[in-house]
Design a binder for these strands. Structure first.
Length: 585
RNA sequence: GGUCUCAUAGUUCAAGGGAUAGAACGGAAGUUUCCUAAACUUCAAAUACAGGUUCGAGUCCUGUUGAGACUACCA
């Protein structure tokens, strides 16, 4: 139970004792806004009906009761119906001790739940772009956050490796490729295949018969024509090598790989089941449908008249198989909001088929599109921002900036390169993840992503600076004498803590609740925002109070401890975003 | 046409129905014999419009305007 919950419980107890009302919904506890004195605030307006007194009188009464019955509460003040409660410094000092002693600080207790997060899910006919980057970063981060919340998490990738779009690349390569390979051209495999996908569309303008040829190729593929199958495997292999390089650089990974070529036939049994149960029906032409008009949607096709399945059929089948095979308690699809309709229908169909618990366990994490100043990315208009180019550009900018600022002086080439990689990716990831996933976000390729202000590098810098202080602190204390043996809570008297130091402890103390909230709302943005607040608060403290020059050794030790914990929590929070924090930059 | 999102400083983003709407970038002005100035401090600057519910609305409801998505026998 966190502190807020404890206060809330105490307040509810006070209300029940004083007014005889036991409705916890009336007890609203929030963190006190920083312009007022206090740690937690009780809003008394909802309680007035029960107290039959003025807001201030009610607040005072509750305040006095709380102080009398809760030793950790130091005092209170009342402003316009808001009861601001202050906890004793000794309470916060003890809290700090707990934080410092807990290597797993922030991690939730095991929930016993298994959750699958499906994300990335690329097509194998072109390289990844900016939209995929948001998907990948979000999916990976949400998975890590859910894991930190105590769930068993499986990261899944469903690769769309078959279909007419793949055949287009294959056909263009066959006709115009002259045997070009990633090795012969020096091109990354996914980019090479993407080149032929573009080529197909160009050639199609001159020769419309190409479309039929591509369709013929798809038929041959489905019939396992050896030549076509070999070509398909070869070109997909190139793409996978390319994707793997991009994934690695982005730092995303998967526990389960699914390939649509192996799953696209799934789901037909479910359709038969649905027909038998009478929830689906067959039209005269043989196609199978489900009537969803009662739920405000349209009729949905499940099998074509030629008996082949559609996207929805496959998704039904894969969902069924996953729930069966992995015993999932939750299945989260990280897919753009353009597919809201699809997932609405998917859940509805599962419910109609009788799998209501599975239907309820599915959550579509519907994230917003990344738009350019001129609107959506359109491959036809050449406005697609390529993922590899973007990452490379960020790292390059980081390198230049580090050089300009003289941060790389005295470092080896390897160290410099590593810092540029860390900072460039940190800037990109934070830029994407700090935005509420559900919202459409804007990216302007002409303006490079910032490295100052509310950015990844700002937070990384705070960490690096703390590391620098800690290094020097150890040396000053005679070398090798780290502080891990010291009892944190007893370092420095709590009464001597500066207000800023208490603020930092309070913010550190919030971290586990932030992780939980991020997990519940599937929002890495909450973690990003927290990390920024913590870095900002610490920077201000760092600016105003010297740590190493502090003469009182107990106070100095406390400040080093505090700094160490700030660095630690920053590192934990940033890790959940997939951002590494450097020890120097 | 129908369904669904979204609309906050010049710009990009915050704000669990609660106090004087927070940041950052950009703009103006400062801080370095001192632990990393990728930092810190100060100033100017916003809830699209009109109603309603509520003790209290950026947040909930209705309408208007504007932007976007979906509405395939594609995936």
């Amino acid at each position: 139970m966190n502190i807020e919950q404890k206060i809330s419980l105490a307040a509810a107890g006070a209300v029940e004792k004083l007014y005889g009302v036991a409705d916890t919904a009336l007890v609203q506890i929030a963190k006190t806004r920083k312009e007022f004195t206090g740690d937690y605030t009780l809003v008394v307006f909802p309680l007035l009906k029960a107290s039959r007194k003025s807001p201030d009188a009610t607040a005072n009464e509750i305040g006095e009761y709380l102080v009398a019955h809760n030793p950790e509460i130091e005092g209170f003040n009342v402003i316009k119906g808001f009861l601001n409660i202050s906890l004793r410094p000794s309470f916060w000092a003890a809290r700090f001790g707990e934080i410092a002693d807990d290597p797993d600080f922030g991690r939730g207790a095991p929930t016993g739940r298994t959750v699958m997060v499906e994300y990335s899910s690329p097509n194998t006919n072109k390289p990844l772009h900016l939209g995929h980057i948001r998907n990948n970063l979000l999916g990976w981060s949400v998975a890590e956050i859910l894991r930190e919340c105590g769930n068993d998490v499986l990261k899944a990738n469903l690769v769309n490796d078959r279909g007419i779009h793949i055949c287009k690349s294959m056909l263009a390569w066959q006709l115009f490729g002259n045997g070009e390979t990633p090795e012969s051209s020096g091109m990354k495999g996914d980019h090479l295949v993407g080149k032929y996908y573009v080529r197909f569309n160009d050639e199609l303008k001159k020769d419309e018969s190409l479309l039929e040829q591509a369709q013929e190729m798809l038929r041959k593929w489905e019939a396992h024509d050896p030549e076509i199958y070999a070509l398909w495997e070869r070109m997909n292999g190139w793409v996978y090598d390319g994707f793997e390089a991009t994934y690695q650089r982005l730092g995303v990974d998967f526990d389960r790989m699914y390939y649509e070529s192996q799953t696209y036939l799934l789901g037909k049994a479910l359709v038969e089941d649905g027909l038998a149960k009478g929830v689906f029906y067959r039209r005269d032409d043989g196609s199978v449908w489900c009537d969803l008009t009662a739920d405000g949607l349209d009729e949905k096709l499940l099998l074509r008249s030629d008996g082949t399945s559609v996207y929805m059929t496959q998704d039904l089948g894969t969902a069924y198989r996953r729930f069966e095979d992995e015993q999932l308690d939750g299945l989260i699809y990280v897919v753009g909001n353009e597919q809201n309709y699809h997932f609405q229908v998917l859940k509805l169909l599962l419910a109609r088929l009788g799998y209501t618990s599975w239907s309820d366990a599915i959550y579509h994490l519907s994230y917003g599109m990344v738009e350019l100043p001129e609107g959506k990315m359109k491959s036809r208009e050449g406005t697609v921002v390529d993922a590899d180019d973007l990452v490379e550009g960020m790292v390059e900018t980081a390198r230049e900036m580090s050089q300009e600022l003289g941060k790389l002086d005295g470092l080896s080439a390897d160290e410099s390169a590593a810092i540029a990689e860390t900072v460039g990716l940190g800037a990109l990831k934070y830029f994407i993840l700090k935005v509420d996933p559900r919202k459409t976000m804007l990216f302007d390729p002409r303006e490079s992503i910032d490295f100052n202000g509310n950015t990844g590098p700002f937070i990384q810098y705070t960490h690096a600076r703390i590391c620098s202080v800690l290094r020097k602190g150890r040396n000053a204390d005679g070398g090798g004498n780290d502080h891990s043996d010291t009892d944190y809570a007893k370092v420095g008297a709590p009464e001597s803590y500066l207000p800023e130091e208490l603020e930092i402890i309070k913010l550190l103390s919030d971290y586990p609740a932030v992780v939980q909230a991020a997990g519940q709302s599937y929002s890495p943005a909450l973690v990003a925002s927290y990390a920024y607040d913590l870095a900002k608060l610490y920077n201000s403290y760092y600016h105003d109070h010297s740590i190493l020059r502090e003469e009182d050794s107990a106070v100095r030790a406390f400040r080093l401890r505090l700094s160490e914990q700030v660095a630690g929590v920053i590192k934990k929070a940033m890790r959940l975003l997939g951002i590494t924090v450097p020890e120097r930059m």
